[in-house]
Nucleic acid binder design. Sequence first.
DNA 1: TCCGTGAGTAAAGCAGCTTTACTCATCCGT
DNA 2: ACGGATGAGTAAAGCTGCTTTACTCACGGA
Lengths: 156, 156
Amino acid sequence: MPEPEPPPPQPELTFLLGMGFQLLLAEFDARVAERGYGDLRPIHGLAFQALRPAGATSSELAARLGVTKQAAGQIVDDLERRGYVRREPHPAGGRRRLVVLTEAAHRHLAVAGRVLHALEAELGDRLDVSELRADLERLVGVLADGRPLPPLRPVW
Amino acid sequence: MPEPEPPPPQPELTFLLGMGFQLLLAEFDARVAERGYGDLRPIHGLAFQALRPAGATSSELAARLGVTKQAAGQIVDDLERRGYVRREPHPAGGRRRLVVLTEAAHRHLAVAGRVLHALEAELGDRLDVSELRADLERLVGVLADGRPLPPLRPVW
DNA sequence: TCCGTGAGTAAAGCAGCTTTACTCATCCGT
DNA sequence: ACGGATGAGTAAAGCTGCTTTACTCACGGA
């Protein structure tokens, strides 16, 4: 019989990472949606975190999210229409405008944080999460190879 | 001073999974591209794997990739134009057509396999990959909760 | 024979971006 | 004081990789 090419020997590490991320994020997203935030995608949560401490301009937001400033501007437009952010005059003046979170966004961050920690705690009952976390930190450290981590993006 | 919400305590597990996947896939993709396959995206590799043993109809391919049959049809059209697959009459007749891999696709699978294993071997020199793999298998098992694993998709 | 079923195709629509091309306000060097 | 250069923001079109809607066609069985 013909022997075309060796099959992947085990579940590939790359595959497992992707599948783990996909399943965990899906579960997180479903639970957050259950709590009334079905209108927010992961990128919105990342935007909230990027804006958390004191706000930012949409150009700064663009850099932190790894998208163009036009895309960031569209995200901010969308979030503003839905009451999650406000645009305020920028203290440094110029053409800048400071994008800041509203109370609604802070409430979402609090809920999302609680959901995430509850989820990790549940996982902690079934496997050694701290070992996994330590291994992943090493993996990320090795692959980043001294460079700063790029923004987290939809991958492909 | 106001105390808005607790900051995430550590690098979140979800974040680390996503970042690990993103970095590892990017490195894999770059190395495969260096070997002359810059024209193939991850979805094409997944399609090759789904078609490997004896080919499949494009509807079967759609199911395995988790996309509509129209999307699978477009992927097949694209791969056919570029010489990675052929459409043959289906032995079971009907309107079906069997999509099979050409030698070019088998060569790509062989190259991609070697690159992936080399990459994992390099990581193995710097961290305990088998422990990580075992942890990830447990994580995926817990999150899948008895259900079959869904197709791997771009996540968000 | 006719109908149901499932494969495949065609065309339009859509989300979420990027690219290209600008407008403005401020800053800095002369 | 002035004339760029710089960087924020906006506008509009384009693009990719899908989905949705709507068919056509071949076969299989009642």
